[in-house]
């Protein structure tokens, strides 16, 4: 079977720093592929490459066997690539519903965009779809509030709803469960497990091993922009190179002797990541704008 998405020898450097190093990733049609790796491994950068924020310095990105490197950022969503952002990109002067509606942009004709008010009956199909997405993500109560200032967990769910209404065939989720509490997390997991169309291919970055294991049939582990392991979730998570990447070499040796690497990994990663990430976020964001 042909892969839905194929990153082939993709390399990206910022200045002299190679952030992604001849990376190969395949996402099969209808698969749920996980992308894991420690902070700064380059996961978000992979998403930015796929959605066109950056162009690779070498290698190519194939979608359905066609190179998409020449397609600019604002036309990738037409190819059926939908994504969420790790650092929340809410439009703060729009309501929740309007934020979600933005995702429908490419499904609406030019004249309709200019001539049909969002609340008019002529936009009923759009409104219905938006409300359904909002309801699916449990956002109905917030629908008419401004997105700015809503709790982090709510904004995370708006991100996902907005990505869903782009009707993606390839969905990229960047740490969708980060910052959610455990019940929200379980809820999100069940939505992702049951509500996404079977034929949709999903690439998902997530640090929570339990989340990744229950959702993904295939996991790729990155470190320093290189692929260090790939395979079924349990196998990858207990792979020595992955444990080393997360815990450092010395700990790894000690843990290997003790013979219990996997639980240590699970416990160590989850709580730490969400804190550190919010610190790093502004810097990463600024980099993106400068590009």
């Amino acid at each position: 079977m042909k892969p839905k998405l194929f990153l082939h020898g993709v390399t990206l450097a910022f200045g002299g720093l190679t952030v992604i190093d001849s990376l190969d990733i395949q996402v099969m049609p209808g698969s749920r592929t996980g992308l894991i790796g420690p902070n700064g491994a380059g996961k978000t950068t992979v998403f930015n490459l796929i959605s066109g924020v950056y162009r690779p310095n070498a290698g190519e990105i194939l979608l359905d066997d066609e190179a998409i490197d020449a397609v600019p950022l604002d036309r990738r969503v037409r190819l059926g690539i939908g994504r969420t952002f790790q650092n929340l990109r809410m439009m703060k002067h729009l309501t929740v519903l309007e934020n979600i509606m933005l995702g429908q942009h490419t499904h609406v004709g030019l004249w309709q965009r200019m001539l049909v008010p969002l609340n008019s009956p002529f936009n009923r199909a759009g409104l219905t779809e938006t409300r359904a997405a909002a309801q699916l993500m449990g956002l109905s109560a917030h629908a008419d509030l401004l997105a700015d200032g809503l709790p982090y967990g709510v904004q995370k769910r708006i991100e996902i709803a907005r990505a869903l209404v782009t009707r993606p065939r390839l969905l990229l989720l960047d740490e969708p469960a980060a910052g959610l509490n455990s019940s929200e997390r379980d809820e999100l997991l069940s939505i992702l497990l049951t509500q996404l169309p079977k034929e949709m291919s999903v690439l998902i970055v997530e640090h929570d091993v339990a989340f990744v294991s229950s959702l993904c049939d295939h996991v790729v582990a990155l470190n320093f922009g290189r692929k260090i392991a790939e395979g079924r979730a349990e196998a990858v998570c207990s792979h020595p190179a992955v444990i080393e990447a997360y815990l450092g070499k010395d700990d790894d040796a000690a843990d290997a002797d003790a013979g219990v690497p996997a639980p240590a990994l699970d416990e160590t990663i989850v709580p730490q990541e969400s804190d550190q990430k919010s610190e790093r976020a502004p810097g990463a964001e600024r980099g993106t704008h400068a590009a």
Binding site: V53, R76, M91
Partner: peptide
């Protein structure tokens, strides 16, 4: 409004 708030973010959605 989307462009004013975050032009690159809007472009990701095809604007």
């Amino acid at each position: 409004t989307a462009i004013r708030n975050d032009a690159q973010g809007a472009a990701v959605f095809g604007v």
